[in-house]
Every structure is written in C-alpha cells, then in structure tokens.
Design a protein around this nucleic acid. Structure first.
Lengths: 100, 100
DNA sequence: TTGGTATATCGGGAAAAGTCGATATACATT
DNA sequence: AATGTATATCGACTTTTCCCGATATACCAA
C-alpha cells in the first residue's frame, strides 16, 4: 500500500471521525440487532446516520479507508459491516516512527 | 493545529520524501559550508536540488510542512534552513495511537 | 548603490478530491 | 416473481491540490 494513499485517506474530517468512532463502537453507535460490534463492526447505514452525509459519499469514504488498509469490511446478508483494521493502523504508526 | 491539515501535508510523495531526507541529513545531502545539519537543518536550495521540482514548489511545500508543525525553519543570512519538528512528529504519533 | 543570490509569494492551468442525486446490484421477504 | 431494503457505482459539478513561471523581497558583496 502506497504511503501517500494512506495519508490521503486520513486527509478528511469525516473519514477521521469515522475511524475515531470505530475505535469505540458501543459508545458511538446505537445497539445493532443481529451483529456484534466487536466481531463484525458497524454497518454503513449507522455510520451514514452519524456522519450526516449522503449514502453514496459514505460508501465511497469507507472504500477509501478500506483501500488504505485502515478498516476492513464483512458482508453479512444485505449489510456490510466495517471495523478498524488493527494491522494497518499499527503499520501506519510504524511508518511515522521509523521513516518520518 | 488541525489534524486534517497534518495529514494533508503528508499526502504528497515529495513532501513525505523531504521529511524522510531530513531524518538523516548527512546521508541525504552534500556537506553545507557554514551550517551544521543538526543545529539548523538543510537549506531550501539543497532540498530543491534533491527533489527536482521548481524552487517555488519546494518553497511552498516546506511552508505547508511548517504550518503542520512537521518541520521548523531558521533564517540565517539569505538562507532558510529547515529541519524536522520533533514535537510535532511525536504529537502525530500520539494522535494515531490514541484516536485512530 | 548596484548587482547577485536565496527564498517567498502570486497567478494560472491541469489534475484530483469532495459531494451529491440517480441508478445499479445484491440480498431478503412475501 | 415482485417488492423492499442496504450498499455500491456512475455522472456531474464545485472546490482543492499540484506544479509551474514570473515577480517580489531579503540579504550580501563590491
């Protein structure tokens, strides 16, 4: 993954917020019926509600974050759940500590 | 400093390279006559030579990095020397570890 | 004070990102 | 099969970023 793409993904207020919300899903989102936050993450609709931008925008933002390995997605039925990508975030931390 | 501005500053290949070069000036730049890399940093002209972009572009890039607290500048005579801003970089590392 | 060098700022054209509404796709339910 | 819901993709428009050349500013040397 290109480093520049990682930082571009983070260069947007809403995307930073999403990542921050996903750090503590239980604190930031209402209970989900059939899915555990810790296992699968939070579905697109909940993130969209919280962010207040259009569905298409949030869907695209999530795929930008995913391409940067900052979140990962799981499809379950008609829902796609997103959660933090721990490995990607650790790698980012390492980049900053070793290369910058 | 706005977090988004920090990540925007890092969302560019050349600016990332500059920061990386400044981590080990002695390895990345030829000797400077009247200035110690460790004390004041590297002057704009040297960075421009290495980056291969126009003088105006590099000057602007450096001020973008400075506004993001990623480098700091010292003017000495007709030269401006730039070096890493250790505090800003530590703060960035902290943001990633605690908020994302 | 005149000229030379280093850096900063300005103005602009091309490319990329932000954001939307409309539409497509995928799946579930009846 | 038909409808409804969740998400993804497309097309368009606006704003921002990239990067340049030209010009301004600051400082130094003769």
């Amino acid at each position: 993954m290109d480093q520049v793409e990682i930082f571009k993904a983070l260069s947007n207020k809403t995307r930073l917020q999403i990542l921050n919300w996903l750090k503590q899903p239980a604190e930031n989102f209402p209970e989900q019926p059939n899915a555990d936050f810790e296992n699968v993450g939070v579905c697109v609709g909940q993130i969209q509600n919280k962010a207040g931008l259009s569905q298409s925008t949030i869907s695209e933002y999530l795929s930008i974050l995913q391409r940067a390995d900052l979140v990962c997605a799981t499809r379950v039925g008609q829902w796609t759940y997103y959660k933090r990508n721990k490995e990607g975030l650790e790698k980012l931390s390492e980049i900053i500590n070793t290369e910058l």
